[in-house]
Computed example of a mutant assay.
Amino acid sequence: MTLEVVAQRMGVSIPDRRTVVGLALALVAAALVLVVTRPAATVPILVAGDDLPAGTPLAELDLDVRRVTDATGLVVGDDLGELGDWSLARPLRRGEPLVPSLLVPPAVHDAPAQMSLSVDAAQAVLGRLSPGDRVDVLLTTEVPGEPSTTRRIARDLFVVDVVVTPSAVGGERVDLLLAVDEATALVLAGSRPEDLDIVRVGP
């Protein structure tokens, strides 16, 4: 006895294949609608809550949180964290997002002058330096007939930028942009680059 005959005797109707297929397609369509209309995941970013000036610590400025689906290239988070002492390199209009390239670390404000220094890569950690690193500068002095002497002439300098380029005599040159005070700038300017060594130091 077939299922249809049993169902007829019991007074139960069995939907035909077209109905079953239609119901299945309707369920699939409903599932697709749920997937398509589901809100995309968002992440919080920081934006200017008002027109913000440059040079003022972020902790003293009016910042808002906005949620976006794509935070590429933006400052992600709903609070400043360790950025409270950082500042803006240029003013921001209300609603503009914070981006890392506009943020200036406090070390640059503590030593507002900037100075370039070019040395051979062998004298600068083989060029393995990055913006944000801190370095000491050592000066080696040689006097004929006497042992060479090395002393530290600059301590804990903030690296603003680094460019590594091929040297005309082979190897590579490391061009550093350093945040310095006036006294340090004078000492470095009076030293020969070939007598200097750059030492990367820890935080």
Results as ranks from 00 to 15, higher is better:
M1A: 10
L3I: 13
E4M: 09
A7W: 04
Q8D: 14
Q8N: 12
Q8F: 13
R9F: 10
M10F: 07
M10R: 09
G11K: 00
R18C: 09
T19N: 01
V20D: 10
V21C: 13
L23S: 11
A26I: 15
L27A: 04
V28R: 02
A29V: 13
A31H: 12
L32C: 06
V33S: 04
V33P: 05
V36D: 06
T37R: 05
R38Q: 08
R38A: 05
R38V: 02
P39C: 14
T42K: 09
V43E: 02
L46E: 03
A48P: 15
D51G: 03
D51E: 00
L52Y: 04
P53K: 09
G55R: 04
P57T: 10
E60Q: 08
E60T: 07
L61K: 13
L61I: 07
L61H: 10
D62Y: 14
V65M: 02
V68R: 07
A71T: 02
T72M: 00
T72K: 00
V75G: 05
G77F: 01
G77H: 01
G84Q: 14
D85W: 00
D85C: 06
D85P: 06
W86T: 06
P91W: 11
L92P: 08
L92V: 14
E96M: 05
P97W: 01
L98Y: 02
V99Y: 10
S101Y: 11
L102V: 12
L103N: 06
P105T: 04
P106R: 00
P106A: 07
A107N: 15
A107M: 11
A111T: 12
A113F: 07
A113D: 06
M115Y: 12
S116H: 09
S116P: 12
L117M: 07
D120A: 15
D120K: 14
G127W: 01
R128S: 12
P131N: 04
P131A: 05
D133A: 01
V135F: 00
V135N: 03
L138H: 14
L138M: 15
L139T: 07
L139A: 09
T140G: 05
G145V: 03
G145N: 04
E146L: 11
P147A: 12
T149W: 08
T149D: 03
R152A: 01
R155M: 11
R155P: 12
V159N: 04
V160R: 01
V160W: 02
D161T: 08
V162I: 11
V162Y: 06
V163P: 08
V163I: 09
T165F: 13
A168I: 08
A168L: 06
G171Q: 04
G171M: 03
E172F: 13
E172G: 14
R173H: 11
L176G: 03
L178H: 02
A179M: 09
A179Y: 03
A179K: 03
D181H: 07
E182K: 08
E182T: 11
A183H: 11
T184G: 13
T184H: 14
T184W: 15
T184M: 13
A185Y: 06
L188P: 01
G190H: 13
S191W: 11
R192I: 07
I198A: 04
V199M: 04
R200M: 01
V201S: 03
G202W: 09
G202Y: 02
P203L: 05
